[in-house]
Structure formats: C-alpha cells, structure tokens
C-alpha cells in the first residue's frame, strides 16, 4: 500500500525516517519526496501488514501519516483515449492494449497528480 508522510518544518532536519526504519525494521520504499520552505512530503510503499507499526513509529516522532487508498479517478466519458498520460506517469499506471484502448492500473498510482495537468480532456482527477 501507499502512504503519504507529512513532515512539518520544525522537525524537517531530524532523521525521523531513518529512525523509524531502524526501529521497526520495515524497508520503506520511497516513491516520491518533496520538500520546500514550509513542509516536507514523502510518498512511500509498504506492505499492508506493516502500516500500523511504521505509522506509530513516525507519528511518535512528530510526522503525520495518511493512507493513500483513493487513487486517480478516470472519467471514461471525458477520456478520448489519446494516451497523453502514459509518458508523464512515473509508475506506469497507464498503458494501451493491442486495440488501442487505454488501460488504467490504479494500484500503481502514487497520487502525484502529474497526469492531471497533462490530460487535455480533464478526464483525470484526485479526491482532495
């Protein structure tokens, strides 16, 4: 499963991710990380069974942890199946089958939103 870890600026300089990994022994697979002057955000992949442990370890160190269980929404009415989304997605959510139908594998989605601004037909969205 995918999780979003939010680290606010007061604790951004502390190695809380490394500490949580060492404490739990859970190998977080970081898919995306973004830091700016106000906040840090990390998208990571873990096994479903590891969720509670890693969440506790991170939350006790001041981070916020959210499950990413609502992946990209695909509006098939608006979609014209051009495939523009295919080349901007970092995790290969989108592909074409042999008949040039667009296939959307939402289990791979890390909710980065890159495809949303690529889609010319406003057919992709994320619940906020």
């Amino acid at each position: 499963m995918k999780i979003r870890i939010i680290i606010n600026r007061d604790i951004v300089t502390k190695p809380i991710l490394a500490e949580a990994i060492i404490e739990t022994g859970i190998p977080l697979n970081i898919a995306q990380a973004h830091f700016d002057s106000t906040t840090g955000e990390i998208i990571a992949d873990i096994e479903d069974t590891e969720y509670r442990m890693i969440k506790n370890a991170l939350v006790s160190r001041g981070a916020e942890v959210l499950r990413l269980d609502t992946p990209i929404n695909w509006d098939e009415e608006e979609c014209v199946e051009c495939g523009g989304c295919i080349s901007v997605c970092p995790t290969k959510v989108f592909s074409m089958d042999e008949e040039w139908n667009l296939k959307v594998d939402t289990t791979k989605c890390i909710q980065c939103g890159t495809c949303i601004e690529m889609c010319p037909h406003d057919a992709l969205s994320l619940d906020v």
Partner: peptide, 14 residues
Amino acid sequence: EVTTSSLSSFKRSR
C-alpha cells in the same frame, strides 16, 4: 529509452 505519448487518439481515428 524515453516513453512516448500520443496526443491524438488512434482508437478514435480507427
């Protein structure tokens, strides 16, 4: 290797 994307719909063209 760089991924390509069509902006035209081949399915609709067909």
